[in-house]
Amino acid sequence: MTEFTELAIRHVTKSYVVDETPLPVLQDVSLSVLPGEFVSIVGASGCGKSTLLRLIVGLDDVYRGEILLGGTQVSGPGADRGIVFQDHRLFPWLTLTENITLALDAFPLPAEEKAQRVRDAIALVGLSGFERARPAQLSGGMAQRAAIARALVRRPAILLLDEPLGALDSLNRTRLQDALLDIWEAQRTTVIMVTHDVEEAVYLSTRIVVMEPRPGRIRSVIPVELAARDRAAPDFVALKQRVLADLRH
C-alpha cells in the first residue's frame, strides 16, 4: 500500500456511439495523481467525470489513450482500485458483514484474517454494532459508510468515489465528509472523488480538477492550500469562489 503508485491518465479520449453517430464524452484528458493525494473532480453534468472513474476502475475498457497505475496499464477491475458509487449498491439479501466479506472473496487469505480485516473496516467507518444488519435496516448515511468499508477492506492503493455523498441530506453529508477525512488521514490512501458540491471539494481535497462538458475535458486544476479546514475562513470562501468562477466560465 505504501509503494509508489502514481496514477497517470494520458490523453484519454472516449466516445459513446448513439444512433450510429459517435458522441464524444472525454477528449484528451491527462492527469497525474500522486500517492496520498485527495483529488476532487467537479464539473457540470455530462462532462464525463463519472465516465473517467469507470475507466480508471476498469468497468469500461474501450477508449483511446493510457491509464497507468504504478507504470502498468490498467485493464479490468483489480484489487489496487476500489470504488464507491452514489447508490450504496450493497446486496440487500446479505448482512453488513457478509456484504463486506464478499469484497475479499477473490483474495487468497485465511478465514481469520478476512474476518479481522472486515471487523477493522467496519470499525473504521464507525459501524461496529451493526454487523448483522441488512442494508434495508441501515440509514442512507450508514449504508454509504458500509459501501466505503466494502471498498476499503480490499486495501486499494486508490479509492474512487463517485458522488458518494450525493444522495444524503446535508447533516449526514457533513458528518460523512469528516468521516472521509478521518479515513483518508488514517489510511493515507489516494482518493479521487467526483462531486457536484464545490464546497465539499474545497473542504476535502488537496487538488480540484474542474471539467467542462461536451466533450468532457479538463478546464483547470486548482491546488488547495488552506491554513485550516474552516468553511467560514476568508481563504476557504475565496477558493470556493474561484472554483465556482471556473465552473461558470
Binding site: 476498469g58 483489480g78 458509487f85 477473490a106 466494502r150
Partner: peptide
Amino acid sequence: EVARVLQL
C-alpha cells in the same frame, strides 16, 4: 458492476 469490481 459491483460483482465485476469485486472480481467475484
